[in-house]
Amino acid sequence: MTDTTASALVARRQEVSQRLTRWAIPTVFAVLVAVAAATTSDFLTFDNLRGVLINTAVTGIAAVGMTTITLSGNLFSLGAGQSAMLASILFMWVASTGGSLVLGVLLALAVLVAIGLLQSLAVAAGLNPVVTTIAAGALIYGAVAGITGGAVVSAPTSAVGELAAFDLLGIPLPVWVFAAFTGAVWLFVERTASGRRLLLVGSNRETAVMSGISVRAATAWAFAITSIGLAIAGVFSASQLGQVTANNLSELTVDAVAAVLVGGTAVSGGEGSAVRSAVGALVIVVLQNVLLLHGLPTGVRILTEGILLVAVISVLHMARRKAMR
Rank of each mutant, 00 (worst) to 15 (best):
M1D: 11
A6F: 04
S7F: 02
R12K: 11
R12Q: 05
L20A: 06
T21R: 04
A24L: 15
V28A: 10
V33L: 12
V33C: 14
A34T: 07
A36W: 09
A37M: 11
T39G: 08
S41R: 14
S41E: 13
D42A: 14
D42R: 13
L44Y: 01
L44N: 06
N48Q: 14
L53F: 14
G60E: 04
I61Y: 04
I61S: 01
A62I: 14
A62F: 13
G73N: 12
G73Q: 06
L75Y: 12
G79Q: 05
Q82C: 12
M85F: 08
M85I: 05
L86A: 11
A87Y: 06
S88G: 15
M92G: 05
M92R: 02
M92P: 00
V94S: 03
G99E: 01
V102M: 13
L103S: 15
L107H: 00
A114R: 10
G116T: 10
V130G: 10
T132M: 09
L139H: 01
I140Y: 01
Y141V: 11
G142T: 12
V144K: 05
G146L: 10
G146N: 03
A151P: 07
P156K: 09
T157A: 11
S158Y: 03
V160I: 02
A164T: 04
A165D: 02
L169Q: 06
L169S: 11
W176Y: 13
W176F: 08
W176I: 03
A180R: 00
F181L: 12
V189A: 06
S194A: 12
N204Q: 10
R205G: 05
E206C: 03
T207M: 10
T207R: 02
T207D: 10
A208Y: 10
M210Y: 11
G212K: 03
G212T: 08
S214F: 13
R216L: 13
T219N: 13
I225L: 14
T226A: 14
G229Q: 07
I232P: 00
G234S: 04
G234V: 06
S237D: 15
A238P: 06
T245K: 07
A246N: 12
L252R: 05
T253K: 08
V254E: 01
A258S: 15
A258C: 08
A258V: 09
A258Q: 08
V262M: 10
V262D: 06
A266H: 09
S268I: 12
E271Y: 10
S273G: 11
R276Q: 15
A278I: 02
V279L: 14
L282W: 04
V283K: 02
V285D: 02
V285T: 14
V285E: 15
V285L: 06
L292D: 15
G295C: 08
G299T: 11
R301A: 11
G306F: 03
I313E: 04
K322A: 14
